[in-house]
Protein backbone atom coordinates (compact mmCIF):
# COMPACT_ATOMS: atom_id res chain seq x y z
CA UNK A 1 0.00 0.00 0.00
CA UNK A 2 1.21 3.50 -0.82
CA UNK A 3 2.71 5.47 2.07
CA UNK A 4 2.80 2.40 4.29
CA UNK A 5 5.54 3.02 6.83
CA UNK A 6 5.13 -0.33 8.49
CA UNK A 7 4.18 -3.45 6.54
CA UNK A 8 3.21 -6.66 8.25
CA UNK A 9 2.88 -9.77 6.11
CA UNK A 10 1.54 -13.14 7.23
CA UNK A 11 2.94 -13.00 10.74
CA UNK A 12 2.33 -15.90 13.05
CA UNK A 13 3.29 -16.44 16.67
CA UNK A 14 2.66 -19.89 18.09
CA UNK A 15 2.95 -21.07 21.68
CA UNK A 16 2.94 -24.84 21.20
CA UNK A 17 -0.25 -25.65 19.30
CA UNK A 18 -1.84 -22.30 20.18
CA UNK A 19 -1.55 -19.52 17.60
CA UNK A 20 -1.68 -16.23 19.53
CA UNK A 21 -1.20 -14.24 16.31
CA UNK A 22 -2.35 -16.03 13.20
CA UNK A 23 -1.55 -14.91 9.63
CA UNK A 24 -1.90 -11.20 10.30
CA UNK A 25 -1.41 -8.74 7.43
CA UNK A 26 -1.43 -5.04 8.13
CA UNK A 27 -0.29 -1.76 6.60
CA UNK A 28 0.30 1.22 8.85
CA UNK A 29 0.14 4.47 6.91
CA UNK A 30 2.62 7.25 7.59
CA UNK A 31 1.24 9.87 9.97
CA UNK A 32 -1.94 8.01 10.98
CA UNK A 33 -3.18 7.07 14.40
CA UNK A 34 -4.05 3.41 14.08
CA UNK A 35 -5.96 1.55 16.76
CA UNK A 36 -5.79 -2.15 17.45
CA UNK A 37 -8.86 -3.30 19.27
CA UNK A 38 -10.39 -6.62 20.15
CA UNK A 39 -11.67 -8.63 23.10
CA UNK A 40 -9.34 -9.91 25.82
CA UNK A 41 -6.98 -12.58 24.53
CA UNK A 42 -7.27 -11.37 20.92
CA UNK A 43 -3.47 -11.21 20.58
CA UNK A 44 -3.07 -7.41 20.60
CA UNK A 45 -0.19 -7.25 23.09
CA UNK A 46 1.48 -10.28 21.47
CA UNK A 47 1.25 -8.41 18.17
CA UNK A 48 2.99 -5.42 19.78
CA UNK A 49 5.66 -7.74 21.18
CA UNK A 50 6.28 -9.05 17.67
CA UNK A 51 6.51 -5.57 16.17
CA UNK A 52 9.12 -4.51 18.74
CA UNK A 53 11.18 -7.70 18.63
CA UNK A 54 10.29 -8.54 22.21
CA UNK A 55 9.06 -11.90 20.89
CA UNK A 56 10.42 -13.68 17.78
CA UNK A 57 8.06 -14.43 14.90
CA UNK A 58 7.12 -18.02 14.12
CA UNK A 59 6.37 -17.05 10.51
CA UNK A 60 6.01 -13.94 8.38
CA UNK A 61 7.82 -10.67 7.88
CA UNK A 62 7.73 -7.09 9.15
CA UNK A 63 9.19 -4.19 7.17
CA UNK A 64 9.87 -0.64 8.28
CA UNK A 65 10.03 1.71 5.27
CA UNK A 66 10.72 -1.32 3.07
CA UNK A 67 13.53 -2.73 5.23
CA UNK A 68 13.01 -6.05 6.96
CA UNK A 69 13.13 -5.56 10.72
CA UNK A 70 11.72 -8.92 11.84
CA UNK A 71 14.51 -10.90 13.49
CA UNK A 72 16.34 -7.81 14.71
CA UNK A 73 16.89 -7.49 18.47
CA UNK A 74 14.55 -5.28 20.44
CA UNK A 75 17.09 -2.52 21.10
CA UNK A 76 18.00 -2.29 17.40
CA UNK A 77 14.33 -1.94 16.44
CA UNK A 78 13.99 0.82 19.06
CA UNK A 79 17.03 2.61 17.63
CA UNK A 80 15.42 2.42 14.17
CA UNK A 81 12.50 4.40 15.52
CA UNK A 82 9.82 2.04 16.84
CA UNK A 83 9.36 2.68 20.54
CA UNK A 84 6.61 1.36 22.75
CA UNK A 85 4.91 1.83 26.07
CA UNK A 86 3.64 -1.17 28.01
CA UNK A 87 0.24 -2.37 29.20
CA UNK A 88 1.60 -2.58 32.75
CA UNK A 89 3.66 0.53 33.43
CA UNK A 90 7.29 -0.17 32.74
CA UNK A 91 9.44 2.42 34.48
CA UNK A 92 12.68 2.49 36.46
CA UNK A 93 11.20 2.42 39.96
CA UNK A 94 14.38 3.42 41.83
CA UNK A 95 14.96 6.50 39.64
CA UNK A 96 13.18 9.80 40.13
CA UNK A 97 10.59 10.75 37.50
CA UNK A 98 13.11 13.23 36.08
CA UNK A 99 15.86 10.59 35.90
CA UNK A 100 13.47 8.21 34.07
CA UNK A 101 12.93 10.72 31.25
CA UNK A 102 16.56 11.80 31.32
CA UNK A 103 17.59 8.17 30.84
CA UNK A 104 15.69 7.99 27.55
CA UNK A 105 17.21 11.28 26.41
CA UNK A 106 20.63 9.96 27.41
CA UNK A 107 20.35 7.15 24.86
CA UNK A 108 19.79 9.63 22.05
CA UNK A 109 22.68 11.79 23.24
CA UNK A 110 25.11 8.83 23.07
CA UNK A 111 28.45 8.47 24.94
CA UNK A 112 26.79 6.00 27.28
CA UNK A 113 29.95 3.99 27.88
CA UNK A 114 31.74 7.04 29.32
CA UNK A 115 32.56 5.66 32.75
CA UNK A 116 35.17 8.34 33.43
CA UNK A 117 32.73 11.24 33.01
CA UNK A 118 30.65 12.63 35.85
CA UNK A 119 26.91 12.00 35.96
CA UNK A 120 26.66 15.78 36.05
CA UNK A 121 27.37 15.80 32.32
CA UNK A 122 23.78 14.57 31.99
CA UNK A 123 22.39 17.73 33.56
CA UNK A 124 22.29 19.34 30.13
CA UNK A 125 19.32 17.02 29.46
CA UNK A 126 17.26 18.31 32.38
CA UNK A 127 15.67 21.15 30.44
CA UNK A 128 14.13 18.86 27.82
CA UNK A 129 13.24 16.25 30.46
CA UNK A 130 11.36 18.86 32.48
CA UNK A 131 9.53 20.06 29.36
CA UNK A 132 8.32 16.52 28.71
CA UNK A 133 7.29 16.07 32.33
CA UNK A 134 5.45 19.36 32.14
CA UNK A 135 3.57 18.24 29.02
CA UNK A 136 2.34 15.19 30.93
CA UNK A 137 1.49 17.19 34.06
CA UNK A 138 4.30 15.57 36.00
CA UNK A 139 6.58 18.49 36.69
CA UNK A 140 5.61 18.63 40.38
CA UNK A 141 6.58 14.96 40.65
CA UNK A 142 10.00 15.37 39.03
CA UNK A 143 11.97 14.54 42.18
CA UNK A 144 9.68 11.78 43.39
CA UNK A 145 10.93 8.20 43.18
CA UNK A 146 9.08 6.73 40.20
CA UNK A 147 8.13 3.58 42.13
CA UNK A 148 6.23 5.78 44.62
CA UNK A 149 4.10 7.57 42.00
CA UNK A 150 0.34 6.91 41.85
CA UNK A 151 -0.74 4.52 39.09
CA UNK A 152 -1.97 7.16 36.64
CA UNK A 153 1.24 9.16 37.04
CA UNK A 154 3.34 6.08 36.37
CA UNK A 155 1.53 5.59 33.07
CA UNK A 156 2.03 9.23 32.19
CA UNK A 157 5.71 8.94 33.08
CA UNK A 158 6.08 5.94 30.80
CA UNK A 159 4.58 7.91 27.92
CA UNK A 160 6.90 10.85 28.65
CA UNK A 161 9.88 8.47 28.61
CA UNK A 162 8.73 6.99 25.30
CA UNK A 163 8.23 10.44 23.77
CA UNK A 164 11.70 11.48 24.88
CA UNK A 165 13.11 9.29 22.11
CA UNK A 166 11.09 11.19 19.51
CA UNK A 167 10.18 7.90 17.75
CA UNK A 168 9.02 7.61 14.13
CA UNK A 169 6.43 5.08 15.20
CA UNK A 170 4.97 5.26 18.66
CA UNK A 171 3.36 2.08 19.97
CA UNK A 172 1.08 2.69 22.91
CA UNK A 173 -0.28 -0.33 24.74
CA UNK A 174 -3.49 0.78 26.48
CA UNK A 175 -2.22 4.30 27.27
CA UNK A 176 -5.36 5.33 29.20
CA UNK A 177 -5.79 2.11 31.16
CA UNK A 178 -6.38 2.77 34.85
CA UNK A 179 -6.65 6.55 34.42
CA UNK A 180 -9.36 8.87 35.68
CA UNK A 181 -11.50 10.89 33.22
CA UNK A 182 -9.41 14.04 33.62
CA UNK A 183 -6.15 12.18 32.98
CA UNK A 184 -7.68 10.39 29.98
CA UNK A 185 -8.56 13.76 28.42
CA UNK A 186 -5.02 14.96 28.99
CA UNK A 187 -3.47 11.83 27.44
CA UNK A 188 -5.83 11.98 24.43
CA UNK A 189 -4.85 15.61 23.83
CA UNK A 190 -1.21 14.66 24.18
CA UNK A 191 -1.44 11.74 21.72
CA UNK A 192 -3.14 14.04 19.23
CA UNK A 193 -0.39 16.60 19.73
CA UNK A 194 2.52 14.17 19.42
CA UNK A 195 1.01 12.38 16.44
CA UNK A 196 1.80 15.39 14.23
CA UNK A 197 4.62 14.26 11.96
CA UNK A 198 4.61 10.84 13.57
CA UNK A 199 2.78 7.52 13.24
CA UNK A 200 0.98 6.15 16.27
CA UNK A 201 -0.27 2.59 16.75
CA UNK A 202 -2.24 2.00 19.91
CA UNK A 203 -3.99 -0.83 21.64
CA UNK A 204 -6.99 0.64 23.40
CA UNK A 205 -10.05 -0.73 25.15
CA UNK A 206 -11.77 2.62 25.63
CA UNK A 207 -13.76 2.84 22.39
CA UNK A 208 -14.68 6.50 22.86
CA UNK A 209 -10.95 7.27 22.90
CA UNK A 210 -10.53 5.23 19.70
CA UNK A 211 -13.49 6.93 18.03
CA UNK A 212 -12.25 10.43 18.83
CA UNK A 213 -8.61 9.86 18.03
CA UNK A 214 -7.93 7.20 15.42
CA UNK A 215 -7.99 7.38 11.61
CA UNK A 216 -7.96 3.63 11.14
CA UNK A 217 -8.98 0.71 13.30
CA UNK A 218 -8.00 -2.94 13.03
CA UNK A 219 -9.96 -5.49 14.99
CA UNK A 220 -8.28 -8.67 16.17
CA UNK A 221 -10.05 -11.73 17.51
CA UNK A 222 -8.35 -15.03 18.36
CA UNK A 223 -5.17 -13.81 16.76
CA UNK A 224 -6.72 -12.95 13.39
CA UNK A 225 -7.75 -9.68 11.76
CA UNK A 226 -11.54 -9.74 11.48
CA UNK A 227 -12.13 -6.16 10.32
CA UNK A 228 -10.23 -3.09 9.30
CA UNK A 229 -11.22 0.45 8.33
CA UNK A 230 -12.61 3.59 9.92
CA UNK A 231 -14.17 3.40 13.38
CA UNK A 232 -17.63 3.80 11.82
CA UNK A 233 -17.04 0.91 9.42
CA UNK A 234 -15.77 -1.55 11.99
CA UNK A 235 -18.36 -0.56 14.63
CA UNK A 236 -21.14 -1.71 12.32
CA UNK A 237 -19.33 -4.85 11.20
CA UNK A 238 -21.23 -8.01 12.22
CA UNK A 239 -18.09 -10.00 12.90
CA UNK A 240 -16.89 -7.31 15.28
CA UNK A 241 -20.17 -7.17 17.15
CA UNK A 242 -20.13 -10.96 17.41
CA UNK A 243 -16.54 -10.99 18.68
CA UNK A 244 -17.37 -8.48 21.41
CA UNK A 245 -20.89 -9.52 22.38
CA UNK A 246 -21.31 -13.08 21.13
CA UNK A 247 -23.29 -14.56 18.23
CA UNK A 248 -26.71 -13.80 19.79
CA UNK A 249 -26.17 -10.05 19.36
CA UNK A 250 -24.79 -10.15 15.82
Amino acid sequence: MANAVLTVRGIVRSFGAFRAVDEVNLDIIEGEIHALIGPNGAGKTTFFNLLTGSLPLTEGEIRLRGEVISGLPMDEIARRGIVRSYQISSIFPDFTALANVRFALQRKRGANFDFWRSERSLESLHGRALELLDELGLVEWADVRAGDLPYGRKRALEIATTLALDPQILLLDEPTSGMGREDIGRVVDLIRKVSKGRTVVMVEHNLSVVEGLCNNVTVLARGRVIASGSYKDVASNEKVVEAYLGAAHA
Binding site: S54, D75, A78, Y86, S90, F92, P93, F103, R107, L165
Partner: peptide, 12 residues
Protein backbone atom coordinates in the same frame (compact mmCIF):
# COMPACT_ATOMS: atom_id res chain seq x y z
CA UNK B 1 16.17 -1.80 37.71
CA UNK B 2 14.33 -2.83 34.54
CA UNK B 3 16.39 -4.51 31.79
CA UNK B 4 13.40 -5.02 29.50
CA UNK B 5 12.54 -1.32 29.54
CA UNK B 6 16.17 -0.37 28.95
CA UNK B 7 16.13 -2.60 25.85
CA UNK B 8 12.86 -1.12 24.63
CA UNK B 9 14.45 2.35 24.86
CA UNK B 10 17.22 1.19 22.52
CA UNK B 11 20.00 0.25 24.93
CA UNK B 12 22.01 -2.83 24.04
Amino acid sequence: NNPERAKSLGYN
